[in-house]
Write a protein that binds this DNA or RNA. Structure first.
Length: 210
DNA sequence: CACATGATCGCCT
DNA sequence: GGCGATCATGTGG
């Protein structure tokens, strides 16, 4: 017997339409993404991940991230310098997008950090919409990608080349919570590293708020 | 070629 | 809290 397919958040979703120009949102300079990965993971809490589609911008205010520290991080796809077609975008210079497919049904979006050849990245785990928080729409990396229609075909795109995928700086100074990363129990000691960051005041954060 | 598994989610108990 | 869906990817023969 077949089971009901997992519910998907259709893209485009009109609740996510917004106007970065009207809001005066600015983009980050390249150097920002080339700096320390943990710093980027913290700093982009409150930033806007945006996608342009048929003339409209769809936006997600990032409220939860995780840092993946490349060759020396057992939880990272690039651990020990692994270099395969899937992971290749992680080796691009900071500011590119790395998207992968997991569990046969979900996509996860990452912002690549550091210089070209240093495969580190920040996983986007949760976001809230521009017109308030539409419940659990983007609470979790899979739902976040579903809501914005992010697929592996977009992996390797540059967020700083004036294209349809961008990251804008957010306003304010969110209160940042810190914890272990989610779902990396297989990574041994690295499972305990405090590399997950979230907006303490957001109801869209996906996992434990400890 | 064959097989094991995962940076998740939703439904079940 | 547990489990199954479902398949691209990586690894090994």
């Amino acid at each position: 017997m077949t089971r009901k397919a997992a519910a998907t958040n259709p893209f485009p979703d009109s609740r996510l339409v917004f106007d970065p120009a009207a809001l005066g949102l600015k983009e980050y300079p390249r150097e920002f993404f080339q700096s320390d990965t943990v710093r980027v993971a913290r700093q982009i809490i409150g930033a806007w991940f945006a996608r342009r589609h048929q003339g409209r911008w769809y936006g997600a205010r990032i409220v939860e991230t995780e840092a993946y520290l490349g060759c020396t991080d057992p939880a990272a796809h690039s651990w020990r310098g692994r270099r395969t077609p899937r992971v290749e975008p992680m080796y691009l210079e900071g500011g590119h997008l790395y998207v992968f497919f997991v569990y046969g049904m979900h996509h996860c979006a990452n912002v690549v950090t550091r210089q070209a050849g240093i495969p580190e990245a920040v996983l986007l785990r949760a976001a809230e919409g521009p017109h308030g928080a539409p419940g659990r729409l983007m609470s979790g990396p899979g739902r976040l990608c579903a809501a914005l229609g992010i697929t592996a075909a977009m992996s390797g795109q540059d967020l700083l080349s004036g294209g349809d995928l961008r990251l804008f700086r957010g306003g304010g100074r969110p209160q940042i919570g810190v914890s272990e990363r989610v779902g990396v129990g297989y990574a041994g000691e690295a499972a305990g590293w405090l590399l997950r960051f979230f907006d303490k005041n957001s109801s869209a954060v996906s996992g434990p708020r400890i």
